[in-house]
Amino acid sequence: MESSSNEHIDYVFKVVLIGDCGVGKSSLLLRYSDDFFQESYLCTIGVDLRIRTISVDDKRVKLQMWDTAGQERFKTLCGHYYRGAEAIIIVFDVTSENSFSNVLRWYEEARQLSRQDTVLVLLGNKSDMADSRAVSTERAQSLAASLNIAYFESSAKLCDNVKETFTATTRKMMEAYQKHHRAHLPDDLTNSKSLHMSQPIKSSTSLNCFDCSIM
């Protein structure tokens, strides 16, 4: 799973998952990074990190996925991680009206604390629980449309549409990067906050560039 240090990496992207407690952020990441689902629930303390390297459109992309705690007590702490993110995935639980109504708040916070070019995505989790569903796909879609962000629906438990969501998000990040990149060429390249890596990680100069981005 983990890329060895001499592997060629084209992009390193930071993805932050936010949303209410218990909507399944950790489960989604666990499913995506380790293809595993845990029935018992344990809330995340502060922040957790998972890393996966994938191939999208012939590019090698290293995803650093930050799993933040949904609890209010960690809000300030987690807010620090928004700034460097290339994408923020707002997760809600399709069986919980409450988690859906909080999406707007999470969205505002993410917009406030993140960069302009950060990709925002809305993700409804627990799509497997059709019986207790409280938020219809249409409602979620129209909310996402009004916010001008993409909407996905997934089930970490059944491994449904998890990979697809991350792949699509990655593609969006690559697009956003290229857009941003073009707009700021050429002198912004060296101290750009974006993190394109045209060279393998072992090359030291591009490395600096990479590190700037995560700040």
Binding site: N191, I201, S204, L207, N208, F210, D211, C212
Partner: peptide
């Protein structure tokens, strides 16, 4: 310092280059 301009460079540099 401009956040991100200097801090982690050498550290990751060191960790990367072995």
């Amino acid at each position: 310092q401009d956040s991100g301009s200097t801090l982690p460079n050498s550290s990751s540099f060191a960790s990367k280059t072995g």
